[in-house]
Design a protein around this nucleic acid. Structure first.
Length: 560
RNA sequence: UGGGAUGUAGCCAAGUGGUAAGGCAACGGACUUUGACUCCGUCAUUCGAAGGUUCGAACCCUUCCAUCCCAGCCA
């Protein structure tokens, strides 16, 4: 056991669990929870927590609950709980029948609060929010006690019951823990436990007009559910003292809170406030805009859940603040998609090619494998004719050194089809290439010449009369700056939005692509991975680019 | 300025007294009917800094420095 904790790859949380199991601290039980507040959509930061909590439970034959931390009725909505359920399931979190809500425990929490009052550990305070703030002191000065701090248990009980009964207006009184107004930890300076809010709750309706605060609710919810390891992010380190205080004071079962660093990613923002702003101000087209780091956005973009899980495992788990490079995420997308996406041909920026020596009106079909390394994907027939489209970038009037695509007089292979040689480029008045006149070598059918002659380049193509036009959405980073939050004086993260984060082009697809189901992921050979979007219609498919293929040539060319 | 947390390569991250894992990125090269994939190679004499203890320190001690979190009736 002890040596298992020293194995590389075991993070500090798992090491702790192994140790707890070894000492029998929870009798070998491992029970975690993923506790989102239903006030927004889940994003990559939550993915880290989902993978941790559900992952740990699975690895140690334990359980993980889904718990909605719904203690603030003014911010929470059913829409969010629905989306959260959907996103967690998509990522692979399985909470079985253990879907809980902090609001399930309101009655129990209330009883505990009365107990705290009876113990002389909580009191009703008449101070206003502002007065409480003034009494709290500052980072360097101790706070002052409220004049209402030493009311009798009877008076406190009476007042608290009347708070519940709705006798007071919002903000008129709160229930506070009686701890230590001079504590160097501000969280411990008589924290608020209950506040009055005459607001309908999305689950409990008008049953309550007082609502418990996070610090009071979370520890007790964990305790009630028998959680063993309560995993949360670093900003809650200061709250742990209160977490323990509440449970200890009430003599309740005590799980342990363990904090880890939250995820930061380059070229993106992961704060709920900023994400909401992007949606509300129309900088993106919604929570599921494929440029959003939300789970629904990533899903729509075509990112497989497996890639996200792999990403979460690769970034590790530690307590140091960190910012992971976006390229790590891209690597995980490509790694999974390369092994799991079928291939097809699509031309996104077409130039017409006329194969002069190919008989007019003739059409033949090539059988092409859907996956070059996995025969189980099968194959499909792709039509070939006298008129084709190839990628504009695959032709140069004056090819640079080491360019092994098409140029006047140059020969290339059309993927799985024939060798062609360019005879002539037809230009318009502005000097743009409008058409290429080529000849093919009939002997090279399938892409190999019997004389053993080699061509360096292989390019993709579609048959013009058979091609299916489609809307292709080319996504790039939403932000142009590595750290969008580092905006110059007088600017905000919004000024770092990448104006070219979305480019829409009209592409030409091979026919088999027309019938793909929405959500299907596919590699357009030599271009990248794409996913059919829900905006598709029968007449007009729409594809989102998930991520490009690595492009060593483009990088090399840019350098010189 | 009080308290808490954290500093290992461009990024993430192991390592917890015996002489710096791994991954991403980058850069070379091989292979290639995707300039993809795959494969091979290069990439920390040094662990925030300075002192100290020790035969031996990224690990222990001291001081300092830097970054992050906390003054909601948000979570």
């Amino acid at each position: 056991m002890a040596d298992a904790t020293n194995k590389p790859g075991v993070d500090f949380i798992r090491a702790r669990i192994i140790e707890d199991n070894a000492t029998g601290r929870y009798n070998g039980r491992v029970h975690t929870r993923f506790p989102p507040e239903p006030n927004g959509y889940l994003h990559l930061g939550h993915a880290k927590s989902i993978c941790l909590n559900f992952g740990v439970a699975k690895e140690f034959s334990g359980q993980c609950n889904l718990r909605f931390d719904d203690t603030n009725p003014t911010k929470e909505e059913q829409e969010y709980v629905d989306s959260i359920r959907c996103d967690v399931r998509w990522l692979g979190g399985d909470w079985q029948d253990r879907e809980f809500y902090a609001s399930n425990y309101f009655e129990q929490l209330y009883a505990y609060a009365e107990q705290l009052i009876s113990l002389g550990k909580a009191y009703v305070d008449d101070l206003s929010a502002e007065e409480i703030r003034e009494h709290r002191g500052t980072l360097t000065e101790p706070g002052r006690e409220s004049p209402w701090r030493n009311r009798s248990v009877e008076e406190n009980l009476d007042l608290f019951r009347r708070m519940r009964a709705g006798e007071f207006a919002d903000g008129q009184r709160v229930l506070r823990a009686k701890i230590d107004m001079a504590s160097p930890n501000l969280v411990m300076r008589d924290p608020t436990l209950y506040r009055i809010r005459h607001a309908a709750h999305h689950r409990t309706g008008d049953t309550w007009c007082i609502y418990p605060m996070y610090d009071y609710t979370h520890c007790l919810s964990d305790s009630i559910e028998g959680i063993t390891h309560s995993l949360c992010t670093l900003e809650f380190v200061n709250n742990r003292e209160l977490y323990d205080w509440v449970l200890e004071t009430l003599g309740a079962y005590r799980p342990q809170q363990i904090e880890f660093a939250r995820l930061n990613l380059t070229y993106t923002v992961l704060s709920k406030r900023k994400l909401i702003q992007l949606v509300k101000e129309g900088h993106v087209q919604g929570w599921d805009d494929p440029r959003m780091p939300t789970l629904c956005g990533l899903r729509r973009r075509g990112v497989p859940p497996e890639a996200l899980r792999e990403f979460c495992s690769r970034i590790g788990m530690a307590r140091a603040d960190s910012t992971v490079e976006y390229s790590m995420l891209e690597f995980c997308m490509r790694e999974h998609l390369n092994a799991n996406a079928a291939r097809a041909l699509a031309v996104l920026d077409p130039i017409k090619v006329v194969v002069e020596n190919y008989p007019e009106g003739q059409v033949e079909e090539f059988d092409m494998p859907y996956h070059p390394e996995d025969k189980s994907y099968g194959s499909r027939k792709v039509p070939f004719s006298r008129e084709l489209f190839i990628e504009r970038d695959d032709f140069r009037m004056e090819p640079p050194k080491k360019y092994h695509r098409l140029a006047p007089g140059a020969e290339v292979r059309l993927r799985y089809a024939y060798f062609i040689t360019c005879r002539e480029a037809i230009l318009d008045d502005a000097g743009n290439v409008v058409e290429l006149r080529c000849v093919y070598d009939p002997e090279s059918r399938g892409g190999q010449s019997p004389d053993g002659r080699k061509v360096k380049g292989t390019i993709h193509w579609v048959s013009a009369p058979h091609a299916v036009p489609a809307e292709i959405r080319l996504y790039d980073q939403l932000f142009a700056a590595e750290n969008p939050n580092a905006a110059p004086e007088g600017q905000t993260f919004l000024d770092n939005i990448n104006p070219e984060s979305l480019m829409v082009v009209e592409g030409q697809l091979e026919p088999a692509l027309a019938t793909l189901p929405v959500g299907e992921k596919i590699q357009f050979e030599r271009l990248g991975y794409f996913c059919k979007d829900k905006d598709s219609s029968a007449a007009r498919p729409v594809f989102n680019r998930t991520v490009t293929l690595r492009d060593t040539w483009a990088k090399q060319e840019k350098k010189s």
